[in-house]
Computed example of a mutant assay.
Amino acid sequence: MSQPVAWIVGGAKGLGVMIAKGLAEDGYRIAVNYRHSREAADTLKEEIEQAGGEAMVMQGDVSRLADVKRMAREVLDRWGRVDALVCTAGPFTFKRIPTIELGDELWREMVDGNLSSVFYLVREIVPVMRRQGGGRIITFGFPEAEQAPAWQGYSAYSAAKAGLVSFTRTLALEEAPHGITVNMVYPGDIRDPYKEAPISAARGNRDPRNPVGRPGTGEDVARVVRFLVHPDSDFITGAVIPVTGGFTNDRFHVK
């Protein structure tokens, strides 16, 4: 089999960085797209290559179908396959906005960026995975998304992510006969400087919002993603997996 390829969607910054580095260590060639963070994407590519890996970066907005189609062609033209699609991209606004005060533009940004984008991506990539004989798709949610909880002030985002839970589980059933697993990971409230940090950076530090006591890191999330995309994880599909340290959204606050 050819060397596997992972597309880390929106992985140039944030939680996708440690996922990209981890999968590169596991032997994946890494494709990363960005909207505006070209410098960060180039830095990540350089770090992966200096460590002996192979990476490519692409500019594109996954909420736009034309961009998704173009980027999919770029990955396939270069490497001819996608073995893992990790959908870390997803806009969020920290400002609490009551539902009836939401503008059309913000609603579309939240829904298209967090839900429609995944639909666009899988429609391009699943046929490729089927031809390969299998693949791994990872979506991202928020704490307790599988319960479709109320989250006052964040109705558009939470509605999109709750919809993504059902989409993830439906796709998991539909694609199981093709050797494609589809799972959701949901991080806790992981914030800078820990999004792109290893677990060692959080050791000895306190975060009282997390029952485990320490801040969460990008490596915490990356460890779970690396497990889910492993070939021997083919019996796990349709799962919604918390990586939260026990954090729940009643502990959420805007700094």
Results as ranks from 00 to 15, higher is better:
Val111His: 06
Asp112Trp: 01
Gly113Val: 01
Asn114Val: 02
Asn114Trp: 10
Asn114Phe: 09
Leu115Tyr: 08
Leu115Ile: 05
Ser116His: 08
Ser116Ile: 00
Ser117Thr: 04
Tyr120Pro: 06
Tyr120Met: 02
Tyr120Arg: 01
Tyr120His: 11
Tyr120Leu: 07
Val122Gln: 07
Glu124Arg: 13
Ile125Met: 14
Val126Ser: 10
Pro127Tyr: 03
Val128Asp: 01
Arg131Leu: 12
Gly135Ser: 05
Gly135Tyr: 03
Arg136Pro: 00
Arg136Lys: 15
Arg136Asn: 11
Ile137Cys: 05
Ile138Ser: 07
Ile138Val: 14
Ile138Thr: 08
Ile138Tyr: 09
Thr139Gln: 13
Thr139Asp: 13
Phe142Val: 13
Phe142Thr: 12
Pro143Glu: 10
Pro143Tyr: 02
Glu144Cys: 06
Glu144Asp: 15
Glu144Arg: 15
Ala145Asn: 14
Glu146Ala: 13
Gln147Cys: 00
Gln147Lys: 15
Gln147His: 14
Ala148Arg: 12
Ala148Leu: 04
Pro149Asp: 03
Ala150Glu: 03
Trp151Tyr: 12
Trp151Pro: 00
Gly153Gln: 09
Gly153Asn: 12
Gly153Cys: 11
Tyr157Val: 11
Ser158Ile: 05
Ser158Leu: 02
Ala159Cys: 12
Ala159Pro: 01
Ala159Gln: 06
Ala159Glu: 14
Ala160Asp: 03
Ala160Leu: 12
Ala160Trp: 04
Lys161Leu: 13
Lys161Asp: 14
Lys161Cys: 12
Ala162Trp: 11
Ala162Cys: 08
Gly163Ser: 09
Leu164Ile: 04
Leu164Tyr: 06
Ser166Lys: 09
Ser166Cys: 04
Phe167Cys: 09
Arg169Tyr: 02
Arg169Met: 11
Arg169Asn: 09
Ala172Leu: 05
Leu173Arg: 15
Glu174Arg: 09
Glu175Pro: 00
Glu175Gln: 15
Ala176Val: 02
His178Gly: 00
His178Ser: 15
His178Ile: 00
His178Val: 00
Gly179Glu: 05
Gly179Trp: 04
Gly179Ser: 08
Ile180Arg: 12
Ile180Trp: 04
Asn183Glu: 00
Gly188Asn: 05
Gly188Cys: 11
Asp189Asn: 14
Asp192Asn: 09
Tyr194Cys: 06
Tyr194Trp: 13
Tyr194Ser: 04
Tyr194Lys: 03
Glu196Thr: 11
Ala197Gln: 09
Ala197Gly: 01
Pro198Met: 03
Pro198Leu: 05
Ile199Ala: 13
Ser200Asn: 03
Ala202Gly: 13
Gly204Ser: 07
Gly204Tyr: 10
Gly204Arg: 02
Asp207Trp: 01
Asp207His: 08
Asp207Gln: 09
Pro208Trp: 00
Arg209Ser: 14
Asn210Gln: 05
Asn210Gly: 01
Pro211Ser: 13
Val212Trp: 08
Gly213Glu: 04
Arg214Gly: 08
Arg214Asp: 13
Gly216Asn: 11
Gly216Glu: 09
Thr217Tyr: 11
Thr217Glu: 14
Glu219Tyr: 02
Asp220Ser: 11
Asp220Gly: 09
Asp220His: 13
Asp220Asn: 12
Val221Thr: 07
Val221Pro: 12
Arg223Ala: 14
Arg223Glu: 06
Val224Gly: 08
Val224Gln: 08
Val225Gly: 14
Arg226Glu: 05
Phe227Pro: 00
Leu228His: 08
Val229Arg: 08
